[in-house]
Simulated scan of single mutants.
Amino acid sequence: MRILIIQDETISGNILQKIELEVASEIDTLKDLIEKRVRYEVEMYNQKVTEFFNGLVQPTESERTLNGYKMKKNKAIDPEQQVYKALEGFQKNGFFVIVNDRQVETLDEQIWIGNGATASFVKLTQLVGG
C-alpha cells in the first residue's frame, strides 16, 4: 500500500485539514481518488457518529459551521450520496484538485498517486450577494 497525503486548502493556501489515505494503485483517475477520499471520510465518521462531520462536501441534514458540518441528527451518513455530491461538486466548480503541483482538469484524467504524492482540494466559496 502507498500513502497519499491529501490536504484541504483555502484559495490563499491555508491548510484546513490533512488526511493520509492508503491507496493500492500508483496510477488512478481523479474520479477514483475523490471516491476513495469521500468513502474514507464517511467511514471514519460512521464509526463514531459525532455531532460534527468534517469532510469534502456537506451531508444532507447538516448545517455549515466553523468546526465542519453540524449534523442535525446523530446518524450514519450514506457514502453513495456523499460520493455523488462530491463528483457533482467538482463538475460544478465547487472545488478544484491539484495533484503533485498540477491542476487536474477532468474526472477521467489519470494521475500518479504513489508514495510521496500529494493532492490538494481547494474549495471555492461563493461570494455573498453574488
Rank of each mutant, 00 (worst) to 15 (best):
R102K: 14
Q81D: 14
V23E: 00
D101H: 12
M71T: 11
V42E: 05
E35F: 05
D32K: 15
T118N: 13
T60V: 14
D28T: 12
N46K: 12
E61R: 15
R64Q: 07
T50M: 02
L21H: 06
I6N: 10
M71K: 15
R39G: 01
V99A: 09
E109N: 02
A117T: 13
T65D: 03
P59E: 06
E88W: 14
Q110F: 08
N46M: 05
D32I: 05
E51S: 13
K92N: 08
Y40H: 09
K31Q: 12
Q17W: 09
E109C: 00
R102N: 07
M1P: 06
P59D: 06
G129H: 11
T29S: 15
V128Q: 14
E80F: 15
L16Y: 03
I77G: 05
Q82V: 06
Q126D: 12
Q7G: 01
N14V: 00
S25Q: 13
G114L: 09
I3Q: 15
V49M: 11
Y45C: 01
K31L: 04
V57I: 11
N93Y: 11
K85D: 02
G55W: 09
Q110R: 13
I111N: 04
P79C: 04
S62L: 07
I77E: 07
L33F: 13
E22S: 09
E51W: 13
E51M: 13
I113M: 06
F53L: 02
K48L: 03
K73F: 08
E109R: 10
I113Q: 05
D8T: 07
P59G: 06
G68P: 03
M44R: 12
